[in-house]
Design a binder for these strands. Structure first.
Length: 725
DNA sequence: TTCTTACCTCTTTTT
DNA sequence: GAGGTAAGAA
């Protein structure tokens, strides 16, 4: 059989991975080393050479995008569909499993998925139900706690409180929340995984079935797996241990949400006989960029260790720019992008990365002023938008009136005179009788327990839902959505808002109609799922990636976290400041290595040219920050760096005397730092807030107590240093 | 019920 | 400093 199309394009290491014998395999895939390629070719190899049916393969990823890409590329390679292969996210596959085995999982057949916002509301209601002080027990914190425990596989009853009252309270909230979820037939994201795992574990027959079925498991981004996901994989891999895990311990940046690098580091303990293959040839970046990244990551301990290399040439030096403030930094970035465009480059080549979303604003302003189209990643996703969730809630309630979460969401949206009092009354009846809010409403109405106006309003709402259901019964999905948006009053409600925001909401609703017109995929092993059910659960699991065409010819702005997996010819990493990146918190909490890995991820996004920048003075959250240069800059060997504007002494000497670069130290002619207190013979006392220029031309901006702020030339000012700020 | 005001938070994000 | 949420007033 001719297998050349599968292996010809691979380098020796990649080929070794793709053609490896069955058994546990750990692929240490460095940034830009072709890991997706290895994964897809592995599937093709298994199928075409080893004769493994797609039916016996399970491939799991973290994002829907990665899953979709994997399926598409495998099919392209094979030239045929691989329908029966299970490809998806951990959550998506767990969901599929639970839909098929809802009985064994002890779930109602029509269980629904809570997204983060639904979950927060649910936790909040639980906390109120327990009569706890919401200020002392914020829903977000409790939710975070619950998710963390679930990610570790822990049920409320199994957590040891160690006598800690806070922990005890959290456990109570967790327990009560879980009860509420069971009652509502609701499942949060973490629950999908945990429930699937427990169902597999506790049902020998099902477990054996799947273990026998999935002869080969493949995992992408293995360094990001948490305890549950790992347990899930181990259970499914069973005794054969045919687990093909691809990951990079140096790119583990999600420890804060439960990812465990240990899963990579200890892989061979759980899977004896593991073969490790390292993909170290990088096809993305110049040698300069790679060497900088390698040197940086060397500072981490406990790595598996690898060194990326490339046969692409050295390329340009990495440019480091130290700006006066964030505006100057933004201006610098925009100018460089303009240079790039004038040299014939395109805007979409450029990505501006930052540590936190708050930093995007100033950059956006600068881009906007210079008329440069840009696109910011992150923020609210399509299916998380208020108006979309409203519309979906109508669809859910029509589909299943017992859906209390949707009921509460739309019973008074748009407002129809059903206030807090009425809702509380309905809720009480529902709780006492142990029925849904919908049933409770009906009972209250028939018992005439409501006053005139409220009774009419509730009756009107119920009639509306019943009518909508009857009217849309035989409609295709998109017509149904359109009908509901129109006749529920949502459209009119949002049309009342004449602002840009309102218009955007209308547009989103239109888009929802469009989305409902697209064919929804119903898994082959679940033929009894209705298109509506498929659409609704898809909406919960797929927050809605922005469609691709929108960001064509745009400069890309995103956090370094969301940049993972992407690559750009021209990359800017902004805010290279101690306290910002690495962030203050991570330094305090011992998370510096993960920050360094994040920096590593950022650097390795760059193909040709990398710019690093900092702002010596930055306003963040309305406060002034005078940060020193990021520790990470000093970890990049200076032969790879080119400093455009050597900084003056902006460092507070007490903070870090040793870390300053040589060429900068020579420039320390002022002996002053921003934030320092000084005295001037004529103007009195003041604080240094800015400076510019160098050597004899250096000027400092001093805010004097008596005469206000002034620029002074260092050479003539004759300042007396009073104290270090 | 709806509008207004006070108050809180503010690393990183997918599902 | 801004933006969103939740409690309070008309």
């Amino acid at each position: 059989m001719d297998v050349s199309h599968i292996i010809d394009s691979l380098n020796p290491e990649q080929r070794k991975a793709v053609t490896a014998e069955a058994g546990p395999l750990l692929i240490q895939a460095g940034a830009g080393s072709g890991k997706t390629r290895v994964l897809t070719h592995r599937v093709a190899w298994l199928n075409q050479v080893e004769g493994v049916s797609p039916f016996a393969i399970l491939a799991v990823t973290f994002t829907n995008k990665a899953a979709g890409e994997m399926r598409a590329r495998v099919e392209e390679l094979l030239g045929s569909s691989v329908g029966p292969m299970w490809v998806g996210t951990f959550h998506g596959l767990s969901h599929r499993f639970l839909r098929m085995h809802w009985k064994e999982a002890k779930l109602p057949q029509a269980f629904q998925i809570l997204d983060s916002e639904d979950q927060r509301r649910m936790v909040q209601r639980t906390i109120r139900g327990l009569d706890l002080d919401e200020a002392q027990w914020p829903a977000r914190t409790a939710m975070w706690y619950i998710n963390a425990k679930k990610d570790e596989g822990l049920r409320a009853g199994y957590i040891r409180d160690e006598g800690d009252p806070t922990e005890q309270q959290m456990i109570r909230i967790y327990d009560a929340y879980q009860t509420a979820c069971e009652l509502a037939g609701a499942v949060d994201f973490a629950e999908l995984l945990l429930r699937a795992l427990e169902t597999l574990r506790d049902n020998e027959e099902i477990l054996q079935h799947y273990q026998a079925r999935f002869q080969h498991l493949l995992v992408d981004e293995f360094q990001d797996t948490n305890a549950i996901q790992y347990a899930w994989l181990r259970l499914l891999a069973g005794d054969t241990g045919n687990l093909f895990a691809v990951g990079d311990d140096d790119q583990s940046i999600y420890g804060w949400r439960g990812a465990r690098v240990e899963n990579i580091l200890n892989f061979d303990i759980d899977f004896p006989g593991t073969k490790v293959i390292r993909l170290e040839q990088n096809y993305r970046s110049t040698a300069t960029i790679l060497n900088a990244a390698n040197a940086l990551i060397e500072n981490n301990s406990g790595r598996l260790g690898k060194n990326l290399w490339t046969d692409i040439g050295d390329g340009d030096l990495i440019t480091f720019y130290s700006a006066y403030n964030e505006g100057d930094e933004a201006r610098f970035v925009v100018e460089r992008i303009n240079d790039h465009i004038h040299a014939g480059g395109s805007r979409s080549d450029a990505a501006i990365l930052y540590r936190s979303n708050a930093q995007s604003r100033v950059l956006e302003e600068a881009l906007f002023r210079s008329g440069m189209p840009y696109r910011v990643y992150g923020g609210l996703r399509f299916f998380e938008r208020m108006e979309i969730k409203d519309a979906l809630a109508y669809m859910r309630l029509i589909n299943l009136p017992e859906d209390d979460i949707s009921f509460e969401r739309i019973v008074n949206q748009p407002t129809r005179g059903i206030g807090d009092k009425t809702i509380t009354q309905i809720r009480d009846v529902a709780r006492e009788a142990g029925v849904s809010l919908w049933h409770a409403s009906a009972e209250i109405l028939s018992a005439n327990a409501l006053k005139g106006r409220a009774a009419t309003a509730v009756g009107g709402f119920m009639t509306l839902i019943i009518k909508l259901r009857a009217d849309t019964k035989d409609m295709p999905l998109n017509d149904m959505v359109e009908h509901i948006i129109e006749h529920s009053g949502l459209l009119a409600h949002y049309k009342k808002d004449r602002t840009d925001k309102g218009e955007a909401r209308i547009e989103n609703l239109q888009e929802l109609i469009g989305a409902a017109g697209m064919p929804v995929e119903i898994p082959e092993d679940m033929p009894d799922m209705s298109p509506l059910d498929a659409f609704l659960s898809n909406a919960a699991l797929e927050a809605g990636e922005k469609q691709g065409d929108e960001w064509e010819e745009c400069v890309q702005l995103m956090t370094m976290h969301s940049a993972k997996g992407l690559e750009f010819p021209l990359v800017f990493i902004t805010g290279m400041e101690q306290g910002l990146f690495p962030s203050q918190r991570s330094v305090e909490e011992g998370g510096i290595e993960e920050e360094r890995r994040l920096c590593y991820v950022g650097i390795t996004r760059a193909e040709q040219k990398l710019y690093l920048s900092m702002a010596e003075h930055r306003k963040l959250y309305g406060r002034d920050h005078f940060n020193t240069v990021s520790k990470f800059i000093s970890e990049i060997p200076s032969e790879h760096l080119q400093e455009i504007r050597p900084r003056l002494n902006t460092t507070r000497p007490v903070m870090q005397p040793a870390q300053r670069r040589k060429e900068v130290r020579e420039d320390n002619v002022t002996g002053l730092s921003v934030g320092q207190r000084v005295r001037h013979g004529k103007f009195g006392e003041g604080i240094v807030t800015d400076y510019e220029g160098q050597g004899a031309h250096a000027r400092v901006y001093i805010n004097f107590e008596d005469v206000g702020a002034k620029w002074l030339v260092m050479a003539y000012a004759n300042l007396e240093v009073l104290n270090v700020a």
